[in-house]
């Protein structure tokens, strides 16, 4: 009798363990996800292939830049976020190919295709010891401005490779929802 009860108990425990393992199995995409390297604005963050330090973040209503000898004005229903950062290759020539603005509500914005022909846009090729710069332009919702995180990686999809995650800090908001200190027109010049 005791033996039978013990057998049933072992069976139940085994079933419970199997169920637990099944429900907590990480997805393959999570197992091979990028490896985060955390930092904040102004820090130099060392990833496997490149170093990055965010200089500043500027918000604007309109972007202005020259494309094929013609001046372009880019308006937005949201707001433009312009991030400038210093880059350096680690120990061999490297690429920086992808950046994502992750808002406080976990909305993810890739760099805007509309401004991808301006100077400093990704992808950027880096050489060791040769300082590089990038200017990332995102078109985002005003509600995603404060408490955002900038994700920067060497490849568009980089499984098991390091990814810089930079906390951009909180930004005060005006009554109309736009961030404090938003500029009306930001010019994407050749130097930045």
């Amino acid at each position: 009798m005791m033996r039978r009860v013990a057998n049933i108990a072992v069976l139940l425990v085994a079933a419970f363990l199997c169920y637990g393992m099944q429900t907590t199995t990480p997805h393959y995409a999570d197992l091979t996800a990028p490896i985060p390297v955390y930092g904040k604005i102004q820090d130099t963050i060392l990833t496997r292939t490149f170093d990055i330090a965010v200089d500043k973040v500027v918000f604007a209503r309109t972007l202005k830049f020259d494309q094929f000898g013609k001046q372009n004005l880019l308006t937005s229903g949201g707001v433009w976020a312009i991030v400038t950062a210093r880059l350096d290759a680690a120990d061999r020539s490297a690429m920086v190919a992808a950046a994502t603005w992750q808002g406080p509500d976990r909305l993810n914005y890739r760099t805007s295709e509309r401004a991808s022909s301006a100077a400093g846009a990704l992808p950027i090729a880096l050489d060791p010891g040769v300082p590089g710069r990038t200017r990332l332009v995102f078109e985002i919702l005003p509600s995603q401005v404060s408490g955002a995180t900038l994700l920067v990686s060497g490849k568009l999809a980089g499984p098991l490779d390091s990814e810089a995650r930079i906390a951009l800090g909180s930004v005060a908001t005006q009554p109309n929802g736009l961030p404090e200190g938003v500029t009306e027109t930001y010019e994407l010049g050749d130097t930045f």
């Binding site: 120990d91 061999r92 020539s93 090729a125 050489d127 060791p128 010891g129």
Partner: peptide, 11 residues
């Protein structure tokens, strides 16, 4: 000498 490696540039 430090083992750093450079690839050709397009810059």
């Amino acid at each position: 000498a430090a083992g750093r490696r450079w690839l050709p540039t397009a810059a």
